[in-house]
């Protein structure tokens, strides 16, 4: 009944028998096109997400084939572990310091570099972008040497300038290790945020600036009343991208400090790695529970950002 109704409006009598066949062939092609994604993404992203929930309910060392189901015991233990909360806090601290620093500093520089009156701006952009194309893990290792307390160039310069007597062990003491890691992280990824902002600024049409100038608006007034309001939606996207990136700092932290000294830079990923791969008796179930908990947290952050994004879109649509 419904079928007849649906095919009625087509009314292309002679084409009718061919259509279903074409559609069927299309369906085959559609799924053929989706196959690589379904297989790869299914196996290496969707399946792992689901199975980490399953693992988190077991006690499993990775060697034995048998996993004993132990219910919520891993979660209780993770939540009771002060080290978990410490790494949770460190991950958040990392984000809270790195993201605003990166997003705002790059915005200011981008405004400067976007002006056609700025000399040598292409060259500056290249220099600032350079760290982005280098390998993070190698940067981490090189930075160990750059910040070396005895012969690293940073300490040599500080000593030559008479600022310190003995070298500062930037990565070797708990009080400075996290700050140094954040600084290197911001340095490493600064260029990418800068390009985001430059792209955003380019979307503001030149005529708008011309009109503002003709109306007698000065540089600062233009910035406040035109550039900044137009950039708001980009602020949300760029912050979103930066937050997501700041949660993935495993390579830099592991190669620069290894999570130390005294766990002072052990972000969540390093915590998971330590329990799953670096312990003498790996505890994959326990590590999975920690991963699930943090995954839920990231999902929540992502959801909030999505809502914020929707909200800015709506206001832009209304305006």
């Amino acid at each position: 009944m419904t079928l007849a109704l649906r095919s009625a409006p087509t009314s292309a009598g002679p084409r009718r028998p061919r259509r279903p066949r074409g559609a069927a062939r299309n369906t085959t092609f559609i799924w053929l096109f989706l196959t690589p994604t379904v297989l790869l993404y299914g196996a290496f992203t969707v399946y792992p997400i689901i199975s980490s929930y399953v693992y988190s309910l077991t006690d499993w060392n990775g060697f034995d084939t048998d996993r004993s189901f132990i219910g919520m015991a891993n979660y209780r233990e993770v939540l009771a572990d002060p080290m978990f909360w410490s790494s949770f806090r460190l991950t958040l601290t990392f984000m809270v310091f790195a993201v605003p620093l990166q997003v705002l500093a790059t915005l200011l520089l981008a405004i400067l570099l976007n002006s056609p009156r700025m000399p040598l701006r292409k060259l500056f952009r290249t220099a600032l972008f350079l760290p982005v194309v280098t390998t993070t893990a190698i940067i981490g290792v090189v930075m160990q040497f750059v910040f070396d307390p005895a012969s690293g160039p940073v300490n040599l310069a500080l000593r030559e300038a008479g600022l310190v007597m003995d070298g500062i062990d930037f990565l070797g003491q708990s009080s400075t290790a996290l700050g140094t890691t954040i600084a290197v992280y911001v340095w490493k990824w600064f260029g990418i945020t800068l390009i985001y902002w430059l792209a955003a600024l380019q979307t503001v049409p030149n005529e708008v600036y011309e009109a503002a100038r003709l109306d007698g608006a000065g540089g600062l007034a233009t910035l406040r009343h035109i550039t900044v309001p137009l950039l708001k939606p980009f602020l949300v996207i760029i912050t979103l991208l930066s937050i997501e990136a700041s949660l993935q700092v495993f390579d830099l932290v592991l190669t620069m400090t290894g999570g130390g000294p005294f766990y002072s830079t052990e972000v969540i990923e390093v915590y998971i790695y330590r329990w799953a791969f670096a312990a003498t008796i790996p505890r994959l179930g326990y590590a999975s529970a920690a991963a699930v908990l943090f995954g839920l947290f990231i999902g929540l952050v992502g959801l909030l950002q999505l809502l914020a994004f929707r909200a800015t879109r709506r206001t832009r649509g209304a305006a």
């Binding site: 792992p48 799953a276 991963a291 990231i298």
Partner: peptide, 21 residues
């Protein structure tokens, strides 16, 4: 739906099942 739901999953959090699989 599945794609959007997994938009915010960093690699480090799925490493254990990836290795196991």
């Amino acid at each position: 739906g599945v794609l959007v739901a997994t938009l915010f999953v960093p690699a480090g959090y799925t490493i254990i099942p990836v290795v196991d699989l």
